[in-house]
Design a protein around this nucleic acid. Structure first.
Lengths: 233, 233
DNA sequence: GGCACAGTTTGCGCTGGCGCAAACTCAGGG
DNA sequence: CCCTGAGTTTGCGCCAGCGCAAACTGTGCC
């Protein structure tokens, strides 16, 4: 197997401080693959055999309840690790990972983990920090669902999405992957009807612009006021 | 500082496989302390200087929102690690830890972490697995809050509490630390009024027995049916 | 170019659970 | 023994957001 070029990893903040040798070490044993839109990188409850790094694209992390309800746990952005069950001593993936757009993914077999951790401690640190961040975000979400109104949760979620995955356009900042009202509903624990109604209302107020599988925020500050339940003032 | 006796750790599943030398190694640098009921082991957002293991008692992990709402993220049981911000590369504690009853806590300064991980890999593994379990549980809670009714969430929460911290009594299984209706409300994202109403209704149906700061489950199977929204059948 | 379908919008009625209020009960301390 | 305050119960009215239903629209495929 040819070693992948280390330029793949330069530019990723997680690897910014690593030496060229470390990068080569990391890439040895990795395999890159294209994942077409809407296909799965891995599936919930399947045995975890690899861990992954998203090189380009956007990935949706989806959990399904025993009753068949779906919720979107998060989106993975370029440069993020995902599917790192191995780092938590898990045997199976707790969720499915679905490409939101065509993606390029770097994958390592789980067997490479101990060696990689031993040789490149910074890689392990990045992984554990990723998990810590996810735990923190998930707990914040629990708090939001416990204490905030639907409108605030949706506003916060849209703001987070544009912040993490926004792309400047003449009209404002747009979420740079296709996302439906249903998707937003599944992130916030509500229905697509409620999301649609609220986005329409916000569009009338000039805070956002909607579109098919598209959301553009034109007035982030105004949305922030809604997220904090302070409206205009 | 006298090295603590290794018998403190025997009997804890996380350390079951470690040798006597490993245990001594772990205990070197640890400090044990008593924490009286209702006092804090550490406080949300304060700089994380130690990590901890609960030797006896029960600890409530509480998060406060910027708006001042409180929610209870979880309870820590005997033998569990907590406050392991260091393992996630965090500088501050994401929540406060309050003793639900008088507790005994083993604490290590964060400085001991790298050495401990290097010498006793099983300890690191236990820590990362703990974090993985917490992340999993927290995500399940998000799903529950997104898809379940209040009644189901409360039923599930009570069941989880008796399962993790239950004590057999002649009348049924009782949560073996003081817990108020308000506490349960803060775990499930509802109000103490709703919790009280539902517990009263369940008591009338013979599923539970209430009491001041006390909940005893007399019919776990019946409660399970409610948690799964299937009632009697 | 037209068709089919996925995604979106909007209306309407209902209800689960909250907010508010008030009464009650029990444990512990003085 | 009584008093105090924390914890609990219960009633009542309301409304945010859901369920259901139906119409609309834009995209991509044939």
């Amino acid at each position: 197997m040819p070693v992948l070029d280390r330029s793949l990893l330069t530019g990723l903040p997680a690897f910014a401080r690593l030496s060229a040798e470390d990068l080569d070490q990391i890439l040895k044993g990795a395999r890159s693959s294209r994942v077409p839109k809407d296909s799965e990188v891995f599936s919930q409850d399947e045995e975890a055999q690899s861990f992954h790094l998203l090189l380009s694209g956007h990935i949706r992390v989806v959990r399904t309840t025993p009753e068949g309800h779906q919720i979107i746990a998060r989106y993975i952005n370029e440069g993020e690790l995902f599917g790192i069950a191995i780092a938590m001593g898990r045997m199976t993936y707790p969720a499915s990972a679905v490409a939101a757009v065509d993606c390029v993914v770097l994958s390592w077999p789980n067997g490479a983990w101990p060696d990689l951790v031993a040789r490149v401690p910074a890689f392990a640190t990045a992984a554990y920090q990723t998990i810590g961040t996810r735990l923190e975000e998930t707990q914040k979400q629990v708090m939001a669902m416990a204490t905030e109104q639907v409108e605030q949760r949706i506003a916060r979620t849209v703001l987070r999405l544009v912040q993490q995955s926004g792309r400047k356009t003449p009209e404002g900042i747009e979420i740079d992957f296709p996302i439906t009202r249903q998707d937003i509903a599944e992130m916030t624990g509500t229905t697509l009807h409620t999301v649609s109604r609220l986005l329409s209302a916000w569009e009338a107020q000039g805070l956002v612009r909607g579109g098919r599988q598209k959301v553009t925020v034109t007035d982030p500050h105004g949305l922030m006021l809604i997220a904090e339940n302070r409206r205009r003032g």
